[in-house]
Simulated scan of single mutants.
Amino acid sequence: MAKLYFYYASMNAGKSTTLLQADFNYRERGMATMLWTAAVDDRAAGMPIASRIGLEADAHRFDADTDLHADIRERHGRATLACVLIDEAQFLTKAQVWQLADVADEANIPVLCYGLRTDFQGELFPGSAALLGIADALIELKAVCHCGRKASMNLRVDAEGRAVQSGAQTEIGGNDRYVALCRRHFSAALRGGAAVPTAEDMR
């Protein structure tokens, strides 16, 4: 029986890289896949899914109105799908997560979702909350804080590298806007500590 998987992590843990490697493994064996990513994230200059180490792939884009179940089943009817892979899964709606569960349960297609667990205030994204609630398998991918501990939090920073404590839940950005931290340093930054080292600072 196919399963719904949620691979979650903080920023810079290699989620897109892991997704693209899984996709490659299927395609190398002659199996068809279907890739999706959030339309709201348009940072990639080339392919819609791009990792920090240079891997990239084309993908369908979803927004809040996309019927993933219908689109996946239509594609599956034309060419048998071995797997569906979702990048930026935190941007899924609750209804879309249930659609993906139906894809696994009814069409017997494994669905692999990759995304952030929490936002810059430590709050769950709607898609992540739904996946944590109903996914068959939860897998944490590890990132590292500048202190060497596991980074589990995503701190939003301003141009001076200081913590941003308010604003919209979704603000697309990379290493210039977000820093992956352990909970201890995340909390310290929110209390008004010194500027946080960014990925560029650590090089």
Rank of each mutant, 00 (worst) to 15 (best):
F120S: 02
L124C: 07
F125H: 03
G127D: 00
A130I: 07
F120A: 01
R156E: 00
K142Y: 12
D136K: 12
A143F: 03
V144W: 09
K150G: 03
K142V: 15
L138S: 04
Q121T: 15
L132K: 14
S152I: 13
G122L: 01
V157T: 09
Q121P: 01
C145N: 07
L132D: 15
G127Y: 03
R149W: 10
K142N: 10
L131F: 01
H146F: 15
M153W: 09
P126A: 08
D158L: 06
C147Y: 07
K142G: 09
I139H: 10
K150Y: 08
K150C: 08
I134F: 09
L131I: 07
L155M: 00
P126Y: 07
R156M: 04
V157N: 04
A151L: 01
S128C: 06
G127L: 01
L132H: 15
D136W: 13
F120Y: 13
R149Y: 09
F125K: 06
G133A: 14
G148V: 00
N154H: 00
A151M: 00
F125T: 08
G148L: 02
F120V: 02
L141H: 13
V157M: 01
G122V: 05
M153Q: 12
A129S: 12
E123Q: 14
L138D: 06
S152G: 07
A135T: 03
V144N: 08
A137I: 13
K142M: 14
E160C: 06
V157S: 02
D119A: 06
I139W: 09
N154S: 09
E140Y: 08
A135F: 03
E160M: 10
A130F: 02
E140G: 08
F120N: 05
A159K: 09
M153A: 08
A137L: 13
I139C: 09
V157K: 02
I139Y: 13
V144Q: 12
L132M: 14
L155T: 02
E140R: 14
A137H: 10
G133T: 14
L138N: 04
D158Q: 00
G127R: 00
F120K: 03
A129P: 03
L124W: 07
C147L: 06
D136A: 11
A137K: 13
E160K: 10
P126M: 02
D158I: 05
N154R: 06
C145K: 03
D158R: 02
A143R: 03
L124R: 07
A159S: 08
R149Q: 10
A159V: 11
F125E: 02
D158V: 03
L132S: 13
Q121K: 15
K142S: 13
A151D: 06
D158K: 03
R149S: 11
K150T: 11
I139T: 15
S128N: 01
S128P: 08
E140N: 12
A129M: 12
M153V: 04
G127M: 06
Q121L: 15
A129D: 11
S152K: 01
H146Y: 15
D119G: 05
E140V: 07
A143P: 04
E123T: 15
E140T: 11
M153P: 00
C147E: 07
L138F: 06
K150D: 11
F120M: 04
G127F: 01
V157R: 06
L132C: 12
L138A: 04
H146E: 11
F125I: 05
Q121D: 12
I139M: 10
E140F: 06
L141M: 14
H146T: 09
